[in-house]
């Protein structure tokens, strides 16, 4: 009986997580378009529902009913595989991400995470690395110049930004003496890591921007010079898969930034429920992502590489050394 309850609980949590992650892009696209509109003194979507609230639903219906086109020269197997490969990893990663300690429902303590891995951080970086395969396969299988160029860029970008991102969080691991995300948040109960690790946070955040392929680092789908990169040949539901995956990664980067550097669900000054604090912080970072998108221009390709290898990598190395020395 105990086993059944435990298994049922895990299944329920996973189902809830998947549902939330699949549905969250709907309000996020609405929010993004609204914020974009108001930053440009437009109104954004206004006509479907109250202030365009139902616009994402209309867009979703449109994407679902559109023709699912596969180019004639495409590698059909890889072409179909790529969106799934891009979609799955961000969902898998959230298994290791904690959203809070625990809540008691009907007298039983329910933890707000699916699993407490002791190498959660390593798991997150390992799995999120798989996502790039979706992009590469998508670009390659479409057999189109723009798509291949886009995915080549993504490939180079991922390699050069995954390294500083990995180095940036080593400082956090040193402070918490653990790679478990739960322990990392617990270690920040009094002082958030951002106080000790401002450089680490800077490197992590910039690399995170690049990782989630957002402006100013969205070279893979630079509309101006590449059409839409690997998105070019995708339509209908497969395109929606890529979009959902992109939003999930944006969310993941925000969640990781909050957990690693901004004290997770630890509140400050105002006593709010831990989960509310967590959601507020994540929402702030999601807003920052959108805000950046409509403020900054895109970096050129060589500038992107220069930032990755000449600025972020030395900075993250120095951060590790200084943290280590201070720790001794």
């Amino acid at each position: 009986m105990e086993l059944v309850v435990a298994v049922g609980l895990i299944v329920f949590k996973v189902a809830l997580l998947i549902a939330i992650l699949l549905l969250l892009p709907l309000p996020l696209t609405w929010l993004e378009r609204k914020i974009a509109g108001h930053m440009q003194q437009r109104m954004g979507p206004m006509r479907v529902g109250w202030h365009g609230l139902l616009q994402p639903v209309a867009d979703g219906v449109k994407l679902l009913t559109k023709e699912d086109h596969i180019p004639a020269e495409a590698d059909r197997f890889l072409f179909k595989l790529a969106p799934i490969l891009a979609l799955a990893p961000p969902f898998v990663v959230f298994v290791a991400v904690p959203f809070g300690e625990s809540v008691s429902v009907l007298g039983t303590e329910i933890t707000l995470y699916v699993s407490n891995m002791n190498v959660a951080l390593l798991f997150v970086f390992a799995v999120i690395g798989i996502e790039v395969y979706g992009v590469i396969f998508g670009g390659w299988a479409a057999n189109s110049k723009y798509a291949v160029l886009g995915s080549l860029r993504t490939c180079a970008q991922m390699i050069s930004y995954e390294i500083p991102m990995g180095f940036a969080v080593i400082g956090v691991v040193m402070l918490a003496q653990s790679m478990s995300l739960l322990d990392i948040v617990r270690a920040q109960a009094n002082v958030w890591n951002i106080v000790y690790q401002p450089v680490g946070f800077f490197v992590f955040f910039v690399a995170g921007l690049a990782e989630s392929q957002r402006i100013p680092f969205d070279l893979a789908e630079a509309e101006g010079d590449l059409g839409a990169g690997f998105h070019t040949e995708y339509s209908g539901i497969r395109f929606a898969f890529f979009m959902v995956s992109e939003y999930a990664i944006m969310l993941l980067t925000s969640v990781l930034a909050v957990i690693l550097f901004f004290g997770g669900w630890n509140g400050v000054l105002v006593p709010l429920p831990p989960l509310v604090w967590f959601v507020l912080k994540v929402a702030f970072f999601v807003y920052v992502f959108i805000w950046f998108r409509f403020t900054f221009p895109r970096y050129r390709y060589d500038q992107l590489m220069a930032i990755g290898w000449k600025v972020l990598l030395p900075l993250s190395m120095a951060n590790i050394i200084i943290t280590g020395v201070a720790f001794l």
């Binding site: 914020i35 108001h38 930053m39 437009r42 109104m43 805000w291 950046f292 403020t295």
Partner: peptide
């Protein structure tokens, strides 16, 4: 730049 776009976000739209 960020301050400018943030300020614009709370200005009235011209639509």
């Amino acid at each position: 730049g960020l301050a400018l776009t943030f300020g614009y976000m709370f200005s009235k739209s011209v639509t």
